[in-house]
Design a protein around this nucleic acid. Structure first.
Lengths: 344, 344
DNA sequence: CTGAAAGCGCTTACAG
DNA sequence: CTGAAAGCGCTTACAG
């Protein structure tokens, strides 16, 4: 167990004051070039790394960002979305030498408690808010604390928090127009949780596109992103009279489950049923046929969210953006094997 | 932006010294019951939460545990394994009011740098080591630092680090005996990365079980856990002469990809090909047919690893364990739709 | 049982 | 340009 050197050790070795060491290490004026060099050399030689807690206590900054994830562990596990998102966030954070603290919570109340505690403990300098709800009370609480935060999703556009979102309306239209062109007139959608903001946005987007195209029927049923519900609802849809010829899913997991049900019922995909997934994880290329899906770069999205949060924390303007409501690249359709012309 | 109260504020309000407040808050002797009550009431009233950095600096403990994940983001995302593992760890850590710091790294060198930096910064009190390799040099580095750590996997049994592992030999035997009983004589395995310790253990386990059972052929091919490689190798296996009648995969993702290839080649599962997955994530129940798999409770495994690490950090004996090499419940076979009697 | 003081390892005004 | 000192918010021996 090696001893960890402190600035006092360096100061002693260099024959200067602790203050001088601090100035030299932080590239601030107050020491001559020669002294600075000498101090830096000694610090490097000793393998000096500043004690985080001491630094945090002095500058009142944790150099850490927090993320609280709700969802039950089992759901989180299978959703490639979150790991990809976190990977992207983490890459940007560690490039800015910020750490990421992760906590998994069971309820909205617990989540708010975590934010309050983090803030009170000064454990984090900011937070990344996932799964934005309709009338999300977290925004008020966090804005009330004065804790820098970025809403991962939206747009809420109430000005309380910074947000990074993508247009979901246009992709809805793109999907339905594509299916329409393939001859589909009865389309169903297995949607996400109804209280999530992006679900309601997609609800509206699909509804209006379906109306404008004049589809014979468009049914939307809300689910919880799990394979179980995806399978159950698909089974119900496919065994009803006048079943849909195409189903659009709000995530990849439910789409894979839906494909399984089609196999189970002996309905060939895409000959007798077309399937479209939202979120193009590797999961969509695992199946046979591969799944047509709405692709977005989730890792890049996570990076962007982290980048905006760092700007906020550093009190800098967000690079290249005029407002705190930032639109990210929208999802685009990647046609694959699971979609084809509608059966007559 | 509310002001965060400090012990000085409480001391002033209670008319006592900061020391007394600290004793009262931490349940230590040094204050009368009456004073303690009063201080606690005032603290609660002010919504006092101790500043983490100040506490850490005093007691020289970060109340935080670190985990560094290697793998490319894309692979991490789709592997349900890691999110489940992290969920389990996090639950135990937050129950012990420890935080979890997550960093994703690109190379073994970077990973070691992260540990060294965490240690030097006193940013974490211990680390959880994933993906234990054959001749894993991380064990030496971490033991050298004197950083408390738990190896998630093993057994390495060199005594350098605490470890939580499960017997992989017996499950290998269980799978092959099961397939043998179903009449399978030509079995293949799509294995994990060859430098991972558990891969080599399974290699040996399968080899010896195959020999003892007297299978006609047992082929093992190493892969990288991705769907792409799982699919490619499966395609190669199934198009070769004297193709196997059953394939065992080292993870769920490759097994799902393998099932896709079977569909693609028009080989009915399980009539003409049986498939077994290792690690029973919800992914295995998403497909049709559902996948027979080796089930282990990964969330509970993560919890156990965190529990052992907390014991180490607190310098307590590990509850109910005699040594630092702890065996966890082994995986058991969960037969589902993807396995059946061998074709004649 | 209680208070005043020193210390954890940094940063940062403030004098020389 | 440099040094001595105070301060961040806790904890903890040490006197009374």
């Amino acid at each position: 167990m090696t001893r960890r050197p402190t600035i006092a050790d360096i100061a002693r070795a260099a024959g200067v004051s602790k203050g001088a060491v601090s100035y030299a290490l932080n590239g601030r004026p107050g020491v001559s070039a020669a002294t600075r060099e000498r101090i830096l050399a000694i610090a490097a030689d000793m393998g000096f790394v500043p004690n985080r807690a001491a630094r945090s206590l002095s500058v009142s900054s944790a150099q850490t960002v927090g993320i609280a994830l709700r969802r039950p562990a089992r759901t989180l596990g299978i959703e490639p979305f979150f790991m990809e998102l976190i990977s992207g966030m983490e890459a940007t954070l560690s490039a800015g030498s910020f750490g990421l603290t992760l906590q998994i919570v069971d309820s909205p109340e617990e989540e708010l408690d975590v934010y309050r505690r983090w803030w009170a403990e000064r454990r984090v300098d900011g937070v990344l808010l996932c799964d934005i709800h309709v009338d999300d009370n977290r925004l008020d609480v966090i804005a009330g604390l004065g804790l820098p935060a970025v809403a991962v999703g939206g747009p809420v556009e109430d000005g309380k928090l910074a947000e990074v979102w993508h247009d979901d309306i246009e992709p809805c239209r793109e999907v339905l127009e594509y299916l329409y062109a393939l001859g589909h007139r009865r389309v169903a959608r297995v949607a996400g949780l109804p209280h999530l903001l992006h679900t309601t946005i997609r609800d509206a987007g699909f509804e209006s596109a379906a109306r404008e195209l004049g589809l014979d029927s468009f049914t939307g049923i809300h689910a919880d992103y799990t394979g179980e519900q995806g399978a159950r609802i698909t089974r119900r849809l496919l065994t009803a009279p006048a079943r849909p010829t195409a189903i659009v899913y709000d995530n990849d997991v439910m789409a894979v489950a839906g494909l399984g049900v089609a196999h189970e019922l002996g309905l060939e995909v895409p000959e007798r049923l077309s399937i479209v997934a939202w979120d193009d994880s590797p999961l969509c290329r695992l199946t046979h046929p591969t799944l047509t899906s709405l692709t977005r770069d989730i890792t890049a999205y996570g990076s962007k969210c982290a980048e905006v949060l760092l700007s906020l924390i550093r009190d800098e303007p967000v690079a290249g953006e005029g407002s705190r409501s930032i639109q990210f690249t929208q999802a685009v359709l990647s046609p694959r094997g699971s979609t084809g012309t509608a059966p007559e």
